[in-house]
């Protein structure tokens, strides 16, 4: 049984008449990368801030590293790292000054220079915060969240505003710190990011938890259908493939044929069936559902609208 590092039980939080979080429960385990995904205003940031102890929940019980985020906030702050979605720094603070200030606040820290280099900020050491680009600011915030080798790191909108190269660098960094035992709790709008990075994800909307599980399990559960689309001129094709048990349906449009089925073996089965009937195939591609499809199905719309 993995150790639970974050446990949220029936969390509720409202702002005036807006219900931001409604009855959310979740567990995050030691050394796991856990992602919270959901459309704008779903309650991701609010949930995270309640867990960090920055916001007082209306209802529910939260425990982080066996601490109560409200009561044991000072102990907790030593042990967690936080990257906020929308929070700046002093306009005229230099990059190294921010890193130096943060380093001085914790009992133990990593080598700040190495971290800056890793995040591609070494040439910006002496730059004022206000002169950094959006992505550079984001990278600095990530540096500040990681400077003290926290046991749990919270990353709200991990790679928003980063170019693809920086994004990949951050993904590498996150995977590395996890390998060192850090537990990661992140939110993201990028399904690709969630799918690649997260061991488990929770999908929330309107403050309610819709689903939780590994990306693969969620895809398997909600969008099990896989498709093979291929082009071939051979006559009587549909008839000849009908016998293959894995294929649930065949739709043909001229020379383009779409085969539907389920399960991990579906594609393999189709390939061997095609080979055994000896059809000449001109084009072949697979359509494997992703987390994005699950999200679309569960929320009824894309992440951005």
């Amino acid at each position: 049984m993995p150790t639970s590092v974050i446990s949220v039980d029936r969390l509720g939080k409202r702002y005036g008449s807006t219900i931001a979080v409604d009855d959310v429960s979740l567990e995050v385990y030691q050394g796991e990368i856990f992602g919270l995904i959901g459309p704008n205003g779903a309650g991701k940031t609010t949930t995270m801030e309640c867990v960090q102890g920055l916001r007082k929940p209306d209802r529910g019980v939260i425990s982080v590293l066996s601490l109560d985020p409200q009561r044991d906030s000072s102990e907790l702050r030593q042990r967690i790292g936080v990257q906020h979605q929308e929070a700046h720094l002093q306009k005229r603070i230099k990059v190294w000054e921010a890193v130096d200030l943060w380093s001085s606040l914790y009992r133990k820290t990593v080598d700040p220079e190495a971290l800056l280099t890793r995040l591609g900020l070494e040439s910006k050491r002496n730059a004022w915060f206000m002169t950094l680009s959006g992505g550079q600011k984001q990278r600095l915030f990530i540096a500040l969240a990681l400077i003290h080798q926290p046991e749990v790191v919270f990353l709200d909108e991990l790679t928003t505003g980063l170019d693809p190269q920086a994004r990949r660098a951050i993904w590498g960094l996150i995977t590395d710190i996890r390998a060192q035992g850090t537990t990661v709790f992140l939110t993201t709008h990028l399904m690709e990011e969630a799918e690649r990075l997260c061991d488990r994800v929770a999908i929330i909307e309107h403050g309610r938890m819709l689903e939780m599980g590994t990306p693969a399990d969620l895809v398997q559960k909600h969008c099990p259908e896989r498709r093979v689309v291929f082009t071939s001129e051979g006559p009587g094709l549909a008839e000849r493939l009908k016998e293959v048990p894995a294929i649930q349906s065949i739709a043909s449009d001229g020379s383009t044929h779409t085969l539907r089925g389920e399960g991990d073996d579906f594609v393999t089965d189709v390939i061997s069936a095609i080979a055994s009937v000896g059809i000449r195939v001109r084009g072949f591609r697979t359509e494997i559902p992703t987390l994005e499809d699950v999200f679309l199905k569960l929320t009824g719309h894309g992440i951005r609208d």
């Binding site: 960090q52 000072s74 702050r77 906020h84 720094l89 606040l105």
Partner: peptide
Amino acid sequence: YREGGILKRLRATPL
């Protein structure tokens, strides 16, 4: 500082 979230960021530290 409040508007820019700087207070919030500092509050999340052990300060």
